[in-house]
Design a protein around this nucleic acid. Structure first.
Length: 798
RNA sequence: GCGGGAGUUGCCGAGUGGUAAAGGCGCAGGGUUUAGGUCCCUGUCCCAUAGGGGUUCGCAGGUUCGAAUCCUGCCUCCCGCACCA
């Protein structure tokens, strides 16, 4: 083959990008065709777009281009997300000249050092990356309607978010509450995963604090994960070796004296207790005291135990020897040491299949646990807990709770006990230590007066499930995932004190958080057009949005007369474009954004505006390594396109892996792909230039056409379920194999038909090279991007 | 722990009841070129010169005339578990 080096992707790609722009072929306006509204998540602007974006967005673009060629009026818009703290954080890191940040942003994000240093405010960062991102997306050839772009800190967008949150509030979807968070006492801030030095895996565990009472009214609070065992308490444990603190808890109702460990005092303060320190009590002074079990009314003794740790819980532990190995072991140890425990009799309160009265005793025997300091004790505890939790049922001693499975009763008991005033909630990390990047051990802080989206609301969940039930989910395997996550979702804090974004309209100290302001913005792509007609944020009033988005006719009269015509026009456009037909996204957004996307749509819109379908794709790794925006390695879209060209980048990322699979970007394989693409280009050009006259078709020709038709059908099938890899197998590799077979046998009559079909077939994937080839036998202004997509027309008769 | 997904020939990856299993990469041989990191053929689980035979799809069982594909148990790996985009 001649002249392999005259395929210049950069020239071709620039040329066609310019043409598309000049002819405005991707600027979508309502018309009488059927519409198709596709969106991908707008990128977050704390860096350049990378291979992950490249994958998700290219999938979106291929679908957009495919549907356009199938005759749909396609709207594919794009915006930019800037809400929240990372951009603010980045500007601070840049200002500080943080070495890692500087290194990553110059080396991986390819930002010249002097430019980087100038990005010392959030606004400058947004300005910079916004331009870069748009250029990148243009340079890879996305068929986006750029007139609709925006950022989430535009005043107009904020007006839209304000309207949304007022409405959510009005409809009762938002409420106030408190919430436990990981907290760094030094930074005085919630700690996120990436802020941690140690303990990323630690979760916040909710303990029940049961208040045993001494005869003088002083409370001995016991923290437990198993509130049900309060029915089997035989005694309490305190560590005689340590010094306890006596404190007073101040509540609106009065004061209450507690005895807890020193560490517990601190924890209680952070979870919002008003605490006054009264004095100290030695552990051994507690031994022998009697305390009343607030649930059963029994009086039990405080006994000494060395396994009691002051840093865990309150330092006072309730003893349930029938079901807790440590308690049984400690009693046995006391007995061995000559301590009189004869008046203690074990109380069995959980029936467990396969076990007798006292599972803790049985398991300790089985494992041969020596004493409370034996590491095996931990194993025994886990074993008993697991069995009792999953298959245990409460016995008659538990009164009205008898017969209930342990796994179900825990929350009920905690709630009831709290209502009775004999218990409280207490939080602990699931593992220690949890240390902030600044070196300070973290605590759990109860953030008060926090605003929540009430995702736990059953009715809301029901509606969301109903919507999901009607949606198409691609690939279908992940539907179960969505269903589970809807059940699992709890109330979510929706506002923070820091970061960019829109203030909560009724409590402007709070900024609406980034996952909370990105739920229905697809609708904003349609109303952002109001800007063209001179609309300002102040014009985006409740009546205007109620009318456009909710179709409230009675709101129309409240709209200023000079705005009415435009507002009606946009209302009609909204009616035309909405709902979203397809949202494609990376799989990391399933458990959050995509879920909220559905929740908010069902909360705010009528059923006919609920989203139609969601597709989810896997991640991208680099030469087998995980990418990281903030640490590297990273392959930016910019660099990929610069190195390989747009078409090759698109072709490679789509053929590398099927939708849900993770794609691994390997430069050696991209090079291999380059050869295929070049070969295709040269071959197609030759065929077009030497356009052979199709004479009589012989059986070989018919075979070729039949194969062509078959592949066309397969491509359509594959694309309808977003299997870009399979689509490309047929549109490109397998088809070219058949062509080779055909040519080897001297076939040439239908070569032009094949090429002509193939150019159209490939146009969604490698649009530039296809436009270039197409232009060889079409007039200027005739775009393959707008040509009808091939259909399987030839029978399989050979 | 809970939930979801996956384990196929050197590698990446098709294939879900019909018998070595697509395609790509890599590797080997041949050819065209010989400026080449070009292109084209053939082979690539094992045995055999071939016909042919044997053994495979994480492991162990089971269903079936027949399973990588269905069922049971087990092992391994990946991901999510929240206030963070």
């Amino acid at each position: 083959m001649k002249g392999d080096d005259d395929y210049n992707p950069y020239e071709i790609e620039k040329k066609w990008q310019r043409m598309w722009e000049n002819y405005k072929i991707f600027e979508a306006e309502p018309d009488d065709r059927e519409k198709f509204f596709i969106t991908v998540p707008y990128p977050y602007l704390n860096g350049n777009l990378h291979a992950g974006h490249t994958r998700t967005f290219t999938i979106g673009d291929v679908v957009a281009r495919y549907m356009r060629m199938c005759g749909y009026n396609v709207l594919f818009p794009m915006g930019f997300h800037v809400t929240g703290t990372p951009i603010v954080g980045l500007s601070e890191l840049i200002k500080k000249r943080d070495p890692t940040t500087i290194k990553v942003y110059t080396e991986y994000h390819d930002i010249p050092e002097n430019v980087l240093y100038s990005l010392d405010t959030p606004e400058k960062i947004v300005e910079y990356f916004k331009k870069e991102a748009e250029n990148d997306m243009k340079s890879i050839g996305y068929s986006i309607d750029w007139r609709r772009k925006f950022t989430t800190m535009d005043e107009l967008y904020k007006a839209f978010i304000t309207w949304q949150y007022n409405l959510l509030f009005e409809r009762g979807y938002i409420s106030k509450g408190s919430h436990p968070v990981r907290w760094c006492p030094n930074d005085e801030n919630p700690v996120e995963d990436h802020d941690l030095l140690h303990g990323e895996d630690a979760t916040i565990v909710e303990y029940t604090l049961i208040k045993f009472v001494l005869p003088d009214g002083v409370v001995l609070p016991c923290a437990t994960l198993r509130p049900e065992t309060v029915f089997g308490v035989t005694n309490l444990w305190a560590n005689p070796e340590v010094v306890y603190h006596k404190i007073e808890i101040i509540t609106p109702e009065g004061r209450e004296a507690w005895i807890v460990s020193k560490e517990a005092v601190k924890k209680l303060k952070y979870i919002g207790k008003r605490v006054e320190e009264i004095g100290e009590v030695r552990g051994d002074e507690l031994i022998g005291l009697k305390a009343r079990n607030p649930i059963t009314g029994d009086w039990v003794s405080v006994l000494p135990a060395s396994f009691v740790k002051t840093e865990s819980g309150t330092g006072i532990v309730m003893s349930v020897p029938a079901h807790a190995p440590y308690d049984h072991l400690a009693l046995r140890d006391l007995d061995v040491s000559g301590f009189d425990v004869s008046d203690i009799s074990y109380i069995s309160l959980i029936a467990v299949p396969g076990h007798g009265e006292f599972p803790a005793v049985e398991v300790c025997e089985e494992l041969g646990v020596k004493n409370q300091n034996d590491p095996e004790a931990e194993k025994a505890t886990k074993l008993v807990y697991k069995k009792e939790f999953h298959s245990g049922v409460l016995k008659d001693v538990c009164g009205k709770y008898a017969g209930m499975p342990v796994s179900k009763v825990k929350d009920i008991l905690t709630r009831d006990f709290i209502e009775m005033g004999v218990a409280e909630i207490f939080y602990e990390f699931s593992e220690q230590p949890v240390v902030c990047r600044c070196g300070t051990p973290c605590v759990i802080k109860l953030v008060e007066d926090q605003w929540f989206l009430r995702y736990s609301d059953m009715e809301w969940k029901m509606k969301t499930r109903e919507c999901l039930g009607k949606m198409r989910i691609t690939p279908p395997e992940i539907r179960a995932d969505f269903e589970n996550k809807i059940d699992w979702l709890k109330d979510k804090a929706c506002a923070r004190r820091k970061g960019l974004g829109t203030p909560l309209p009724w409590d402007p100290e709070w900024i609406i958080e980034s996952l909370a302001d990105s739920t229905i913005y697809m609708a904003y792509y349609i109303i952002v057009k109001l800007q063209e007609f001179g609309f300002k944020a102040s014009d985006l009033t409740k009546p205007v949005l109620d009318y456009i988005l909710l179709g409230k006719d009675d709101a129309f009269s409240e709209i200023p007369e000079d705005k009415r015509e435009i507002v009606s026009k946009i209302r009609r456009e909204f009616e035309y474009w909405y709902p979203v037909d397809l949202r494609t996204s990376g799989k990391d957004l399933v458990a959050n954004h995509l879920l909220f996307f559905i929740f908010h749509h069902v909360a705010l819109f009528d059923k006919d505006k609920w989203p139609k379908s969601i597709a989810v794709n896997g991640f991208v790794s680099l030469e087998g390594q995980k990418m990281s925006k903030s640490k590297g390695p990273l392959l930016t879209m910019k660099r990929a396109v610069r190195t390989y060209g747009a078409d090759l980048t698109r072709l490679y990322i789509l053929s590398n892996a099927e939708l849900m699979q993770d794609a691994d970007w390997r430069s050696a394989n991209v090079e291999g792909m380059r050869k295929h693409l070049q070969r295709f280009y040269h071959w197609a050009r030759d065929v077009i230039q030497n356009k052979a006259q199709s004479g009589e078709l012989d059986s070989l020709d018919r075979w070729m056409l039949s194969r062509l038709s078959y592949h066309v059908g397969e491509v359509r099938n594959a694309l309808s379920s977003l299997q870009t890899r399979r689509a490309l197998q047929h549109a490109f590799f397998l088809l070219l194999n058949d062509v080779r077979w055909y040519e080897r046998r001297g076939g040439k009559n239908v070569l032009f038909t094949v090429v002509d079909t193939m150019i159209k077939l490939m146009a969604p994937f490698t649009p530039h090279i296809c436009e270039e080839l197409w232009s060889l036998y079409h007039r200027e202004g005739e775009f393959v991007s707008l040509a009808p997509y091939p259909e399987p027309t030839w029978g399989i008769d050979v």
